[in-house]
Computed example of a mutant assay.
Amino acid sequence: MRIILLGPPGAGKGTQSTRIVERFGIPQLSTGDMLRAAVAAGTPVGLKAKSLMESGALVPDEVVVGIVADRIEEPDAKRGFILDGFPRTVAQAVALDEMLAAKGLRLDAVVEFKVDEDALVGRIAKRAAETEARGEAVRKDDTPEVFKTRLDAYRRQTAPLSAHYAGTGLLRTVDGMAPIDAVTGEIETLLRGLQPVSA
């Protein structure tokens, strides 16, 4: 089962990823974690990424796709994986499809979390207030101002993926504003209905 979780920051993708990992026994692949691991391991792609990161340059799509390509060869990803935070653009989605096709693989579904953006901003503000009330430091990306910037970036870069994957027939949507357990149930029903991977 090879799936992508799609939705704006704060939509609940991280929470649901953890539950999918537990329920279906497939790893969640975060491009940030994979980049750091590839750099630490000194793989050819990792070394390329390291020199780019040290120079302050953005890691280009082909390097990120190369890191994903290496990671899905590992034994724990043979039965499938969840991609979270990648692809971020339609160009990355096309590159990902090409890489998977070259391996004789394909995605099974793209699960999009439909959310009310105003309510999300409220959710983040509440989380920040609760964190402060406990005397803990609020994460930089958990302030409403930073969150709105991230939301704008999502709308510009990543939201077009919804139409892209709808065109391929892979897109499935869940109500990201529903209670957490209800969202989990909806995702599980959807994933159990997928055809077994033939690869």
Rank of each mutant, 00 (worst) to 15 (best):
F147W: 05
Q92C: 02
G80Q: 11
A137D: 01
T18D: 13
T158A: 08
P44S: 10
G42C: 12
L100P: 03
V197E: 00
V110H: 02
A38V: 10
A91E: 08
L47K: 15
R2E: 08
V146C: 03
A93Q: 04
A38P: 07
V115T: 14
T184V: 13
T18H: 11
G56R: 10
L52C: 09
T149M: 15
M177Q: 06
P160M: 13
G185L: 07
P8S: 14
A159C: 09
D61F: 02
D175M: 01
S55I: 12
R172F: 12
L190T: 15
V65F: 06
Q28K: 13
T89S: 15
L105S: 04
I26L: 10
E117N: 02
A182G: 06
R2H: 04
V174A: 08
G46T: 02
V115P: 05
I3F: 05
S55H: 08
Q157E: 11
G10P: 04
D181G: 07
R19H: 04
V59F: 10
I3V: 15
A159S: 14
T173I: 07
V197Q: 00
L5W: 05
Q157K: 12
E188H: 10
T15E: 01
G104L: 14
L83M: 14
M177S: 08
Q28G: 11
K140L: 15
E132I: 12
A128Y: 02
I4T: 06
R123P: 01
A128K: 03
V115W: 05
A49V: 12
P9W: 03
I20L: 06
A93K: 04
V68I: 14
S17T: 07
D97H: 13
A137P: 00
D33W: 03
L52R: 07
L96C: 10
M1R: 12
A128W: 02
F24Q: 07
G66N: 05
D152V: 13
L171F: 04
L52M: 14
G66V: 10
R23P: 01
L52Q: 07
M53C: 07
G25H: 05
A119Q: 13
A119F: 09
V59L: 12
A37E: 12
A49E: 03
P8Y: 03
V64S: 11
A37K: 13
I180A: 08
L120C: 11
R127P: 00
F86W: 02
F113E: 07
L5E: 04
E136H: 14
P196Q: 06
P179R: 00
G12C: 01
D152C: 09
D175N: 11
Y165F: 07
I180H: 00
L191E: 01
A199M: 00
T168A: 07
P87T: 03
E62G: 03
T149A: 15
K140A: 15
V45T: 13
A129Q: 13
T143Q: 00
E117G: 00
T168P: 07
R88Q: 02
Q28F: 06
Q92H: 13
R2V: 12
L29R: 11
L6D: 13
R23S: 08
G169W: 09
A57G: 15
L107Y: 00
G169R: 11
I82T: 06
A133Y: 08
A101K: 14
Q16E: 00
A77F: 09
A153P: 02
